[in-house]
Amino acid sequence: MFASPKRLRELGVLGLNQRNADYIMRYNKRSRYPLVDDKLKTKDLAKKAGIAVPALYGVIETERQIRGFSKLVENYDQFVIKPAQGAGGDGIVVVTGRSGEFFRKANGQLMTLDFVTHYLSNILSGMHSLGGLPDCAMVEYMVQFDPVFNELSYQGVPDVRVIVFQGIPVAAMIRLPTRLSDGKANLHQGAIGVGIDLKTGATGLGVTQNRVQNFHPDTMNDTRGLIIPHWQQIMELSAQCADIVQLGYLGVDIVLDKHLGPLVLELNARPGLNVQLANDRGLLLNLKHVEKLKSLPVSVEDRVEYAQTHLVVA
């Protein structure tokens, strides 16, 4: 029924309490949280540092600006609406096209303009934000995901999550949307997390809702053996993101665009623990390894190289 705590400790499995007390509270300065909690600020910082992000079409900050929404999107058929301070992928709507007066969602459902404006006003009143604080809505470029994932994805956009500790990538997985997750790349909602080898970018076994699974439930394709394109670039982007927000324990979410390559979608100061299940490797092993280092590699390239030589299963 239960795993023995001793065995988990041996495997280096990180628990929530320890993640909070020993990593998030120790390595993440509270004053830097707003940089990642507010996606607008993250985007701004990333752009200044020359990191590729999905283009921002517009921001809606007041109820009044909602009226200008149809004007804002008149030139775009496809776009994504996001609450700037949404947590865990909540409140994101992906519009994949138009059908007369209607907007078409990723799952094929149609929305009226009226529905969208109500949705925007909910975002502004803080329905999806952390702590229910007033928020603003971002309208941005819809990622054209790389066809390499066609076999392993249902509707939504798969994203790569890299855990970066003290600037060094320590674990990575790719989250694949399923029918159950309603096209969202969120493990809590039924998406599959698939571990990625830090060195080669090759995918391994998948995990869904704490169960190990080696095939995608909708496409029935094997999750193993796919090589993530631009892997080296993804690793470097992740290490770079840790520098711009100065957080010691960070989750970096990256999507692969067909034309634009890897784009940083968002950063997370409290990344979840499923990555260790997906990789079948406890996070503590690499975290402790990095903590024991007397001097950390400095440049982005060195850090990635360090991760790829020392933090992978031999």
Partner: peptide, 11 residues
């Protein structure tokens, strides 16, 4: 979590 991470063990 002992239950949640059981997957890691079994696997």
């Amino acid at each position: 979590e002992l239950f949640r991470f059981k997957a890691a063990l079994n696997h």
